Computed example of a mutant assay.
Amino acid sequence: MANQLKVIIDQPFSGLIWKLETDTENDLIYIETRNEKEHSAGFSSLNLKTGKLNFSELVSEEKWLVGLSGGRKGILFLHGYLSDQTPEHKAIIALNGETGKQLWTNYNLSLETFTQQGLLAADQRFQSKRLVLLDEKTGNVKTGIDLNDLADDVQPIQIPQMLLLPPQNLAALIAGTITGGISCFNYNPYLIISLHTQKNEGYLQQLFVVENEAIIYQDLLNEQIQKLQPEAFVVIKNYLVYIKNKSTLKVLNLEQ
């Protein structure tokens, strides 16, 4: 089968991929991996445009009770957890998104949300929530801005829609009995599809890229899994981003 699409990232990790976030303005993609055996969380940065691995599975001083919040302006933001018994966050840790070098930390605040004006954070030293606006690069409090007028900063990630049946004329191209819903995304001239087929006592999860009713790219995402997996891919700008075997990040350039 001729592969007409260029794979620009094919990056395996030692831990399971737990979370994926992007800083699309700076073409950065961030990965949180978790290694149960080592009881550690790792954080990685890749350049979406060039495929460069900036750093891989960086482990912070707190090895386990730490997670990925997101990225903006070339900076990766991490958070801690109040305890291993609660999902509630504490602290903000800011790292350079290309080097992994720590830029600043604040252990009294927790990140509420990203806004176009800065980081909206809550001061945890007060029983009633007290909000402040922070500069992303320094962590300093911004003043003179009405917190009621902040604009959300949402990353432009496109997710597939779910179909009950495969698009017409495509079912014959796919071997096996299709089970469950079908993730589908139209990126002209391509139709991107992910679905499950039955195999023995389990399922296969597969990804297909179709052009003019012909499969031009396909990959096996998971083999012999026991339950249907959630949506398998996203589209960021002109890149198809997906996870293979729960531990490998793959990115294809959809524009040649």
Rank of each mutant, 00 (worst) to 15 (best):
Phe43Pro: 00
Gly100Asp: 02
Asp146Lys: 09
Val59Cys: 06
Leu58Trp: 03
Leu46Met: 14
Lys237Asp: 14
Lys90Gln: 13
Tyr217Leu: 13
Ala172Leu: 10
Lys129Leu: 01
Leu170Met: 14
Gly118Phe: 00
Gly139Asn: 09
Leu131Ile: 04
Thr50Asp: 07
Asp219Tyr: 02
His39Tyr: 13
Asp219Glu: 11
Leu164Asn: 15
Ile8Ser: 03
Gln218Ile: 09
Pro160Arg: 12
Lys49Glu: 11
Asn253Cys: 13
Ala171Lys: 15
Ser40Val: 09
Ala122Glu: 07
Gln229Lys: 12
Leu221Asn: 01
Asn188Lys: 15
Asn238Lys: 13
Val210Arg: 08
Leu228Trp: 05
Asp146Asn: 14
Gly97Val: 05
Gly71Phe: 01
Asn186Ser: 14
Thr86Ile: 10
Ile31Gly: 01
Phe185Tyr: 11
Phe55Arg: 07
Thr86Pro: 02
Leu109Phe: 11
Leu111Val: 08
Ile31Ala: 03
Ala122Arg: 03
Ser83Cys: 10
Ile9Gly: 00
Glu98Ala: 06
Leu228Ala: 08
Ile178Lys: 13
Leu191Ser: 10
Ser83Trp: 06
Pro12Lys: 04
Asn47Val: 08
Gln206Phe: 02
Asn140Lys: 15
Leu170Glu: 06
Ala232Trp: 00
Ile29Asn: 00
Glu112Gln: 08
Leu195Asp: 03
Ile236Glu: 09
Val141Phe: 12
Gln161Phe: 08
Leu134Thr: 00
Leu134Tyr: 00
Leu78Asp: 07
Val241Pro: 01
Leu150Met: 11
Leu165Tyr: 07
Glu231Val: 04
Asn26Val: 04
Ser40Ala: 14
His196Leu: 10
Ala122Phe: 02
Gly42Arg: 02
Trp64Arg: 10
Ala41Glu: 04
Phe55Asp: 07
Glu57His: 06
Leu191Thr: 15
Asn222Asp: 14
Leu95Val: 06
Trp18Pro: 02
Leu120Glu: 09
Gln205Tyr: 09
Lys37Gly: 15
Glu61Ala: 08
Leu150Ser: 09
Cys184Met: 13
Glu231Thr: 11
Leu20Gln: 10
Pro160Met: 11
Ala94Val: 11
Val132Met: 01
Gly74Met: 02
Gln224Cys: 05
Val141Lys: 15
Phe13Asn: 00
Leu131Asp: 04
Leu46Ile: 10
Phe43Met: 08
Gln226Phe: 09
Leu109Asp: 02
His89Ala: 11
Pro189Lys: 07
Tyr190Gln: 04
Tyr187Ser: 10
Gly15Asp: 03
Glu38Ser: 12
Ile29Gly: 01
Gly118Arg: 00
Ala2His: 09
